[in-house]
Design a protein around this nucleic acid. Sequence first.
DNA 1: CTGAAAGCGCTTACAG
DNA 2: CTGAAAGCGCTTACAG
Lengths: 359, 359
Amino acid sequence: MPELTLHDIAERASVSKSTVSRVINHDPHVNTNTRARVEEVIRATGFTPNAAARALVSQLSGTIGLVLPHSVSMFFTDPYFPHLVKGVSQACNKHNMIMALFLADSAEDQKNLFARVTRKGLLDGVVVQSGHHGDQTLIHQLVNSRLPTLVAGRPLFEKDASYIDIDNVAAASKAVTHLIACGCQRIATLTGPSESAVGVDRLQGYWQALVQAGLPLDRELVVESDFTELGGYNGAKALLKAKPDGLFAASDLTAIGAIRALREAGLCVPGDVAVVGFDDMPIPQVTDLGLTTIRQPVVQFGVKAAEMLLEMIQNPSHPRLIEIMETELVIRKTCGYNLLAGHGGENQPAFSRDLINYR
Amino acid sequence: MPELTLHDIAERASVSKSTVSRVINHDPHVNTNTRARVEEVIRATGFTPNAAARALVSQLSGTIGLVLPHSVSMFFTDPYFPHLVKGVSQACNKHNMIMALFLADSAEDQKNLFARVTRKGLLDGVVVQSGHHGDQTLIHQLVNSRLPTLVAGRPLFEKDASYIDIDNVAAASKAVTHLIACGCQRIATLTGPSESAVGVDRLQGYWQALVQAGLPLDRELVVESDFTELGGYNGAKALLKAKPDGLFAASDLTAIGAIRALREAGLCVPGDVAVVGFDDMPIPQVTDLGLTTIRQPVVQFGVKAAEMLLEMIQNPSHPRLIEIMETELVIRKTCGYNLLAGHGGENQPAFSRDLINYR
DNA sequence: CTGAAAGCGCTTACAG
DNA sequence: CTGAAAGCGCTTACAG
């Protein structure tokens, strides 16, 4: 059967195409009876308007893009990205938008990405994940394109871009301050890549907490890592000779790998080395280890990012948007569990989860 | 500046819009000089044709959908789905298509999904992940819609659908046969959900291998699980009283949780209980544990699924497409490592990876 | 090889 | 409140 068009509906309801269009678009200036009649025909026929035709005339496609640049091909091992995708998807479901996902699997993909993403008539706007130095060209292009663009995570160079982030400096400082409160004197850190804003900011928070506490800065205690479990494992091995009694890992996966290395070296966590991670990913290892960590609301972050973008799309003259989301310290076994008020000792159930928030 | 249209390019190149369109669409019937002139104008202006206009007239949007139904909201804890997404994305990048991702986060989302996905003019076709019983309505609707639909994973009920799958029965049988070859006599299994084709098929493979080996079927040795780590942990605890000496877990995460429970119960893996998983997910736990498992090529599976769909789109009268991808047994420490030819004992590096393929 | 014209299926001033 | 008409930016027979 041929596809139904506005014309067919108009004919069957004995009105003009204009009126059918008004009904579909909830134009209030339609007679109640007329509206009811048209709606009945639409219901009976199961008519849906053609999205391409609407996009052409309205200059709005009802689709937003989520761009994950090349450096994010770690997408797979780190649950962060599926959660981000979930958040953006939730917002799209709620606002009846379509989510187009762009994953640059290679440098070549990335080069083609800008042209594909900015095809006219395709997207109404784009959320782009801030990445490493190598991704900044793409971000620069997007931010300066005709397309409304929201950067997820502080962009490294685009000082005028709208973005959403967490306060990584404050969060890292909160984590390290907790290690200090737990009595650690030689606190090491396994950083994220120094090429990424996240890596830079969390390292700065580490420094800041040490300075505030009057503790010395020791370069031996800082090792650059890469947010992976293996990176954490290797990084912790490299730290052993510096004999830390505390460790701030820039991600949960890093912390998990580090703890594996520490235990292999015969050290107890938290007895010999207290450990704090970052993310609070809902993965079994985090709860199995009882990892003390910084919780960031990744799904909500994605939701909010998408909604900020929708705001920019609806209101193109809107001034620059910036949002910083809250994080919280989640205290579990690897650092500070014994400090919790009312802690009853080893009889606590393995999965009890208590929080202290250093604000 | 106003957006450029075909008309502007035509004017600047002193040709008609038709000719510009032909150049853009690589129509061979264009004079070489004319073509060069038009191409130069396009290059100089950075013109890109409007996707909505093209979609409207050509009835092809250049976008395919990837639909992950409600039961797949486990998306996040299981790395399977990000890998599938990556595969579909790779195929889209390669074939210059756009991937729209639909994630049904709730039963309500799922109800709205069909209408959103089948909006006319939006998608050229859709890959839908086969899920549980509750998802079969959506799959039924999609398969019977105007939209070319490829089901990823054997659909439970749609007997005429095009789909891609692995041979779960054979793969599971291969896993259990390996446990038998390693000397196990009481082989337990932690299944996937009995509501899913994967769960059903892998259980059947388990039975098949036992029957072929002349081993008895003991209902105590079969516990239904859910593909999660926690499910594996709890499932293994429930199996303890049946005293298995081998365990086939229907997913890697299940196996990982099960091994945790077995070790907590004071049992050695593989000494007391040999374990085989399923998936060979590239996650640290799999390699840390040295998990013997069935490797399935998830990314390639996604690539192939998308390419099959593209085939269906290009050739709408194409007969039903079915593809079964190969799996292989990956032997590591949790079962059969000592059987490997040339195995040198405990001095093997922890990450050596050797394969035996029972075909 | 090239151009004028029709048409894809909508939305939206403009009249009434 | 309603309809006729123009137009969104392309592609594609149809002529030449």
